[in-house]
Simulated scan of single mutants.
Amino acid sequence: MKKNKILGLSLLAVGALGFSTSAFAESAAVQTDGKASFVPQSGNINTIKPGTDEKIDIVDGNNERVTVENIQLMHVPDFDFGNNETSVDTKNYDAIYEHYQKSGDTTKYAIPHFVQVGDVSGVQGTAWAVTVEQDSLFKENGGHSLKASRINIYNQALTNNVQTSNVADVVTGLTIPSDSSVQVPVKGVDSTGSIAVLTSKAGKTDGTTTNGTISSVVFQKDYDESNYGKTDSPALTDKNADVKLNVPQSDGVQAKTYGAKLNWTLTVGP
């Protein structure tokens, strides 16, 4: 019995030795270079539906954009408060939704008003901000002005197409008082000056920079992109209750069409 056990061990040892001998191999390696260089993107950045990467085209509204230091202000909204009845009371009038089309489609959809900025600077930690003020009072062609009427924004939602879970680490929006609104000031009339609507936090890490991303502020509470761009989404004539024109009774609004310009300014650095 002992011989059998010893023989068994000897066979196993020989087998292991034979395997280890055949497993040894010699190798050598050569390294080559991989290389890529980048420059900031030129030309227009495609507007996207906030909260997605879906490319869209704004229709029936503003399509102007500006670029400063490779930061692009891609979209700012018009505010159309529609046709309304005159009143002896102070009134708030909601703004009609913006309209957009999906790329390659002619169907129009409603979407809440939004501001959008694309950062193709190629630099982490770029500081930028978008501000707004009304250029002048609402006025009709005959010269009558609405001296106390102001646009008010009641709610907002922030989105970033890359930093989806930590957008608050990337940008800030309007400073809206709790249970109130922020007023768009009129240049030369209101003492507050322009207000910041979207500002980068100039983070210097991959998780806090806006570099290579698109940021948006949507003027709507609890904005959910899935509610827009489908058959049962709001109608084109529906209104956004989070953007209002407040017209005090003292303004004595006339049965005419009033208009005003808004100045949206992109500032970059330092």
Rank of each mutant, 00 (worst) to 15 (best):
N4H: 11
L12G: 13
A13N: 06
G15A: 14
G18Y: 07
S20N: 10
T21I: 07
S22G: 11
A29M: 08
Q31T: 14
T32F: 11
G34K: 15
K35E: 01
A36E: 09
F38L: 07
F38G: 10
G43L: 08
G43T: 11
N46I: 11
T47L: 12
K49W: 06
K49T: 09
P50S: 06
G51F: 04
D53S: 15
E54L: 12
D57T: 15
I58N: 09
D60K: 12
N62Q: 04
N63R: 15
N63H: 09
E64K: 12
V66Y: 02
T67D: 01
V68Y: 07
I71H: 00
D78N: 15
G82Y: 10
N83K: 13
N84I: 13
E85P: 12
E85V: 13
S87I: 10
D89R: 13
D89K: 12
T90L: 02
K91S: 12
K91G: 00
Y97P: 06
Y97C: 05
H99M: 08
H99E: 14
Y100Q: 08
Q101L: 04
S103N: 13
G104R: 08
D105Q: 15
T107W: 01
K108S: 10
I111P: 01
I111S: 09
H113Q: 15
F114N: 10
F114I: 13
D119L: 07
V120P: 03
S121F: 03
G122R: 10
T126P: 02
T126R: 12
T126E: 06
A127F: 11
A127H: 08
V130K: 05
T131V: 03
T131M: 03
S136A: 04
G142H: 01
G143Y: 04
G143W: 00
A148S: 15
R150C: 05
I151A: 03
I153D: 09
L158R: 12
L158S: 06
N160K: 10
N161G: 03
S165G: 04
N166C: 03
A168P: 00
A168S: 15
D169T: 08
T172F: 06
T175P: 05
S181C: 07
V186D: 01
K187N: 06
V189F: 06
S191L: 06
G193S: 07
G193L: 07
S194F: 02
I195C: 10
V197C: 02
K201M: 04
A202V: 15
D206V: 14
T209R: 07
T210V: 05
N211Q: 13
T213A: 08
I214Q: 01
S215Q: 12
S216I: 07
Q220I: 11
D224I: 10
E225I: 11
Y228C: 03
G229Y: 02
K230C: 05
T231N: 03
D232W: 08
P234M: 01
T237Y: 00
A241M: 12
D242S: 07
K244C: 00
P248D: 10
P248I: 10
A255V: 13
A255N: 14
T257Y: 02
Y258W: 01
G259C: 00
A260P: 02
L262Y: 05
L266G: 07
P270H: 09
